[in-house]
Design a binder for these strands. Sequence first.
DNA 1: TATAATATATAAGAATCTGATATATCAAGA
DNA 2: TCTTGATATATCAGATTCTTATATATTATA
Lengths: 116, 116
Amino acid sequence: MISTELLKGSLKSIVLKLLAENGRMYGYDITRRVEELTAGKIKLTYGALYPVLHKLEVEGSVTTESENYNNRTRIYYKLTPKGNNFAVEKIKELEEYMEVMSMLLKPNIQSGLIGS
Amino acid sequence: MISTELLKGSLKSIVLKLLAENGRMYGYDITRRVEELTAGKIKLTYGALYPVLHKLEVEGSVTTESENYNNRTRIYYKLTPKGNNFAVEKIKELEEYMEVMSMLLKPNIQSGLIGS
DNA sequence: TATAATATATAAGAATCTGATATATCAAGA
DNA sequence: TCTTGATATATCAGATTCTTATATATTATA
């Protein structure tokens, strides 16, 4: 299980990535998909997820469709064209962040040997 | 320039990584090293960095040595044995997080083609 | 009958970061 | 001489985001 502290700031990007890939999803679905894709190492909390989804809706990045399945309400979220552009941008940013972080993480031979 | 939003949660791990690698560093030094290692893509703010350093000291993860260099005070931070163990743990966690995030980021063929 | 899974939602509190502000020295250029 | 930029630490109000707890409700399983 990954310390959720690290997840801070990337939740929105993850949600956008999943929506861009899966067309439309509902909240509960998103948490399960993340769990599945990360082999159970990331478990989203609803207290974090729903505010993000609502905010994306207010921003005009997603539209919602409420459907009934076995007497349970599902609220599907789907990217708008604007949301899709935003998703592309955020995913690119996250990928760049990952690259930069790997620069920081790799053993730094300069400072470790030559620089001292 | 990386959106600093993504940095949330990993700042402490980055600081620990640099201290583990460089023996001792002072605050200003850390910001420059991060800028250097990330090709200017990450610029730490002091409002974020100093509270982290102070917290690490309170927790007993680092000790400080104040030195004077050209009439400018430098406060060097150095890992304690406890801090070193903590650093190893946090760096491992960050590496695991990077792996997990790459699982989420890679194009998902299952859901994209087969699953639909 | 009770528990687990399914499904959404909110809110208080905690943690963390941004951006502004403050202080001070030294070097370089106008 | 004066101003700007680099060097160096520090704090704080405000914003943002996440955690944890709580609430509600249905269906399936033990």
